[in-house]
């Protein structure tokens, strides 16, 4: 496994919903609903993430359920994300260049969801583990996706093979 690996999983089916009635509606559809804001749960073939207070992202085959007609206080959110899985030994160094959130301090045990910006792009981030390596699920609006992926690759690339800088008398 390379020091940093970024995989594009945008094609995975997903759907979103928000509103005061969303949690109850999802439960009525038979989905487990994360209680606390900014947490997520595993479901078969995917996950359900509570984004902030009252918005949900469902990924995997279960997302098809969200095509059901919405109820009162339920507002469907069309998801067209660029979705990525970033993993590797040096993932933390990559994150340290693009994001001011301290992921180490989170503790993946609580299954946190982080809504923040990375490299200036709004993202949903979920820390995870992949084959014992630190990993991160990332979603961003697909109109930022191309630039975002390009930038991640650039930063990761430079980490692995630093561009020689002119150390000629660099002053402190």
């Amino acid at each position: 496994m390379s020091a940093i690996n970024i995989a594009d999983v945008s094609r995975t089916p997903r759907a979103g919903v928000k509103g005061a009635g969303a949690a109850a509606w999802l439960a009525a559809l038979g989905l487990p609903v994360p209680d606390a804001p900014n947490t997520w749960l595993s479901i078969e073939g995917g996950l359900i993430a509570r984004l902030g207070l009252a918005e949900f992202l469902v990924e995997g085959p279960a997302s098809a359920k969200l095509a059901a007609p919405p109820a009162h206080g339920v507002y469907p959110v069309l998801r067209q994300d660029t979705a990525l899985v970033a993993a590797g030994e040096r993932l933390d160094e990559l994150l340290a260049e693009i994001c001011s959130v301290d992921f180490q301090a989170l503790g993946p045990a609580a299954q946190p969801v982080v809504l923040t910006t990375m490299a200036g792009v709004t993202v949903v981030a979920i820390p995870a583990e992949e084959s014992g390596m630190p990993a991160l699920r990332l979603w961003c609006d697909s109109t930022w996706g191309a630039w975002f992926c390009q930038t991640l690759a650039e930063v990761a690339g430079e980490l692995i093979q630093p561009i020689p800088t002119n150390h000629q008398g660099a002053t402190s």
Binding site: I98, A170, S172
Partner: peptide, 22 residues
């Protein structure tokens, strides 16, 4: 102490947005 301009400049992110038909 004086700080080198290269350090202050940093990488500089100017995100770009593109339509699907780009």
């Amino acid at each position: 102490h004086p700080v080198p301009m290269s350090h202050l400049a940093g990488r500089g992110f100017t995100p770009e947005r593109r339509t699907p038909m780009h």
